[in-house]
Simulated assay, not measured.
Amino acid sequence: MTTVLVIAKEPLPGRVKTRLTPPFTPAEAAALAEASLSDTLSAVAAAPATRRVLVLDGTPGPWLPPGFDVVPQCAGGLDERLAAAFGGCAGPALLIGMDTPQVTPDLLTVDFTDCDAYFGRAEDGGFWALGLAEPDPGLLLGVPMSTPSTGAVQRARLVAAGLRVRDLPVLRDVDTAADADAVAALAPHGRFARRLALGAAAAHR
């Protein structure tokens, strides 16, 4: 069985989803971020795992379901924070972010029997999931993050290390308002879609 890690920021106005502002206010963007995180944590809670860990920048809130260990993110760049998250795992681990509320428990059900790594590319060129049978922080350190080539560089790093990589489906991150609309349509019954609909209804009053 696998440890599932979720790396996330506390959903506070002005600190999360800033690219949604405008058209959303900072408070609305934070509410969407909270809904996205809640949907993600619910999927992780329903997926098979030996341990579920929230690697958090900030303080847990009422959105955190039971069954999760909470560890603080370390200082440094995103590559260093992701590396440290894997460094705290003793066995197989799968790491995801908080930007894909359409994720399902099935997508998070991984088996390392005949592979060494799982890789989930994001539509924007990054990646939404990375799984390692033997977590090695060195596989992430130095990978340029938040660029259109991040995913390609990270996957190439895995292959260069001799790992057998299994690809997960490509998912769309929520960064912009257009992303929010598209992702909500993929998971219309989730908290994220409901929160987005509430915001749209308020805007047309």
Rank of each mutant, 00 (worst) to 15 (best):
residue 4 V to Q: 03
residue 5 L to E: 01
residue 11 P to I: 09
residue 11 P to E: 03
residue 14 G to L: 10
residue 14 G to N: 12
residue 18 T to H: 08
residue 21 T to D: 11
residue 22 P to R: 12
residue 23 P to T: 06
residue 25 T to Y: 11
residue 25 T to E: 10
residue 33 A to H: 00
residue 34 E to G: 01
residue 35 A to Q: 06
residue 35 A to T: 03
residue 37 L to N: 02
residue 37 L to V: 09
residue 37 L to F: 06
residue 39 D to V: 02
residue 40 T to Y: 02
residue 40 T to Q: 08
residue 49 A to D: 02
residue 50 T to P: 03
residue 50 T to W: 07
residue 53 V to D: 02
residue 54 L to N: 01
residue 57 D to K: 07
residue 57 D to Y: 00
residue 61 G to E: 09
residue 62 P to M: 05
residue 68 F to P: 03
residue 70 V to T: 01
residue 72 P to V: 03
residue 72 P to Y: 01
residue 75 A to M: 10
residue 76 G to M: 00
residue 78 L to H: 13
residue 78 L to N: 13
residue 79 D to G: 04
residue 79 D to Y: 08
residue 82 L to P: 06
residue 82 L to T: 02
residue 83 A to T: 05
residue 87 G to C: 09
residue 89 C to W: 00
residue 91 G to K: 03
residue 91 G to Y: 08
residue 91 G to Q: 09
residue 92 P to D: 08
residue 95 L to V: 05
residue 100 T to K: 03
residue 103 V to C: 03
residue 104 T to L: 11
residue 104 T to C: 13
residue 105 P to M: 07
residue 105 P to F: 00
residue 106 D to T: 12
residue 111 D to W: 09
residue 112 F to C: 14
residue 113 T to W: 04
residue 114 D to C: 14
residue 115 C to G: 11
residue 115 C to E: 14
residue 118 Y to N: 09
residue 119 F to M: 07
residue 119 F to N: 02
residue 121 R to N: 11
residue 125 G to D: 05
residue 127 F to V: 03
residue 129 A to G: 06
residue 135 P to G: 12
residue 135 P to H: 03
residue 137 P to W: 00
residue 147 T to Y: 13
residue 148 P to T: 07
residue 148 P to C: 10
residue 150 T to E: 11
residue 150 T to D: 07
residue 151 G to C: 06
residue 152 A to S: 11
residue 152 A to P: 08
residue 154 Q to G: 13
residue 156 A to L: 15
residue 159 V to Q: 11
residue 165 V to R: 08
residue 168 L to V: 09
residue 169 P to Q: 10
residue 170 V to Q: 13
residue 174 V to Y: 04
residue 174 V to Q: 07
residue 175 D to V: 15
residue 180 A to W: 01
residue 185 A to G: 01
residue 187 A to G: 02
residue 190 G to T: 08
residue 191 R to M: 00
residue 191 R to Q: 05
residue 193 A to G: 09
residue 193 A to S: 12
residue 197 A to C: 04
residue 200 A to W: 15
